[in-house]
Write a protein that binds this DNA or RNA. Structure first.
Length: 250
RNA sequence: UAUACAGA
């Protein structure tokens, strides 16, 4: 069962429609051998559906597991919310996070589940619902983590709300959560969009100090900011660093 | 360390 679950998970990671089909075939196959999928197998299968944006299949798997007497857990819930989010179905995402815990009282939405919900709203470009999700999370006394804050910052960056993005960065620091490379990438993208190249470069320096060597995404965001702001010298400098770090300069 | 969430 573990072997098959690992294989199903590999399909989930591979992503895409072909991979989901393979994942379902694997589950059929294990059942032919008399092996019953367990919670991890089912959760991996739902994850594969999520990555393929197949919300319908994800909920079919949920029904299948209920029929088999396997009780959904918090990973199941998070994956289902994520599936709805990837497919742009935010109403379904809110419904899942509200109704599943009613059906299964052992289920209580956790921070990753709310993060998936917040990200769903972000992808649907619905800031109001994103704030609803955040509020629900706080009403449950769940503390936002680095993923929550980074998601919020990306969302604000995406809609040009740079003040909110920086305010969120400030707040996360106040509560003692250290921004990571992803967080810095989003903030730099926000500054880049606004043409605030110097502020973007200051954040790059800070990222280096607190997170070590930047990764490709972080460098790219910085480079895009410098180029977008027409700052050739800075763009050259970042390109050089990027090249020296072994990344292909876009 | 078999499964879930973030980098316009």
């Amino acid at each position: 069962v573990v072997t098959y679950s690992v294989a199903v998970d590999a399909c989930a990671r591979a992503g895409g429609p072909t991979a989901v089909d393979q994942a379902f075939e694997l589950v059929d196959e294990m059942q032919k051998y008399g092996l019953e999928p367990n919670i991890v197998t089912y959760n991996s299968l739902i994850h594969a559906c999520a990555r393929a944006k197949r919300t319908d299949m994800a909920f079919q798997v949920l029904n299948q597991m209920k029929m088999a007497g396997v009780t959904p857990d918090i990973v199941t819930l998070c994956s289902l919310v994520d599936a709805c989010g990837r497919a742009g179905q935010i109403d379904s995402a809110f419904m899942a996070i509200r109704t599943l815990p009613r059906e299964f009282p052992s289920l209580s939405p956790n921070v990753p589940a709310y993060n998936a919900l917040i990200h769903a709203c972000f992808k649907a470009q619905n800031i109001n619902r994103m704030h609803d999700a955040l509020q629900d999370m706080q009403d449950r006394s769940l503390q936002p983590n680095v993923v929550t804050f980074s998601t919020l910052i990306s969302a604000y960056a995406a809609c040009g709300e740079i003040e909110r993005a920086t305010a969120t960065l400030r707040k996360m620091r106040e509560v003692g959560i250290k921004p990571n490379r992803m967080t810095f990438t989003s903030i730099i993208a926000a500054y880049g969009q606004r043409g605030e190249v110097d502020l973007a470069m200051a954040m790059l320096d800070e990222a280096k100090r607190s997170c070590g060597e930047p990764d490709e995404e972080l460098y790219t965001a910085s480079l895009v900011a410098a180029v977008g702001g027409g700052r050739k010298e800075l763009a050259m400098k970042v390109s050089k660093e990027m090249d020296r770090a072994g990344y292909v300069v876009p």
